[in-house]
Nucleic acid binder design. Structure first.
Length: 218
DNA sequence: GCGACAG
DNA sequence: ATCTTGTCGC
């Protein structure tokens, strides 16, 4: 597969991202995650209040899988379904968390950047693993963090979301700063490694794939 | 050339 | 991501 075309699309994305603190008070946060099977990508976005994590809305959407998983090109696999589900939301969040990198990407075009630019909303990337960059291990204490660097630039945060557990990799996607990204993500962490919006979205996306959403009662 | 490599 | 049950540990 010739990736030149997609690399250009990523350059277009990275040239449009805005990394700055333009947000006012964040009261409503959302998480987007995808589940897969041989044919479809099932996306789910869960919207919740940041103060008590109560779910106030959620949306689902599925799309045919049209792109293979290739490191640094994840957005072309999940973007469509996520955007489709976002349009179905009745309640739009102040910011959207995506399961993957933001600017912590070789071309500053992670999934969160692509989704943020496309929807023109603030987004952050929350990944369970590093894609690129170097960092010093944060302390084993919950809340401890260090910075992720790439080509001499500070591109993300390595956050110990849970004591003694592997840290998560957080980075801005669009319309938010690095510091604000950390502040907001920290607020959404409970007793698990993954921030609540994404943790719930992950569970829902999986139920959706299994066709068990109709049995749910919210 | 070798190793790394989101989900 | 997905294939998969029980099990060791705080």
């Amino acid at each position: 597969m010739d990736l030149e075309f997609f690399i250009k699309k990523q350059s277009e994305i990275s040239s449009r991202i805005i990394i700055a603190d333009l947000l006012e008070e964040v009261k409503v946060v959302a998480g987007a995650d995808c589940s897969f099977d041989e044919k479809y990508v099932y996306a789910c976005i869960v919207v919740m209040k940041i103060d008590d994590f109560s779910v106030i809305d959620f949306a689902l959407a599925k799309e045919l899988v049209t792109f293979p998983y290739i490191p640094t090109f994840l957005s072309f696999r999940e973007e469509k379904a996520i955007i489709k589900s976002f349009y179905k939301l009745k309640v739009k969040p102040d910011i959207l968390f995506c399961d993957g990198q933001g600017i912590a990407h070789p071309r500053k075009a992670g999934l969160a950047c692509a989704v943020g630019v496309e929807l023109d909303i603030p987004t952050v990337g929350v990944a369970k693993n590093k894609l690129c960059g170097t960092f010093k291990k944060p302390t084993n204490t919950r809340g401890s963090f260090s910075y992720l660097y790439y080509r001499g630039e500070k591109i993300g945060i390595v956050l110990r979301s849970r004591s003694g557990v592997k840290p998560i990799f957080v980075s801005p996607g669009h319309k938010i700063s690095l510091e604000r990204t950390r502040e907001i993500v920290v607020k959404t962490i409970t007793r698990y490694r993954i921030p609540e919006p994404l943790r719930i979205a992950h569970i829902f996306a999986n139920y959706y794939k299994q066709g068990k959403i109709s049995r749910m009662i919210l």
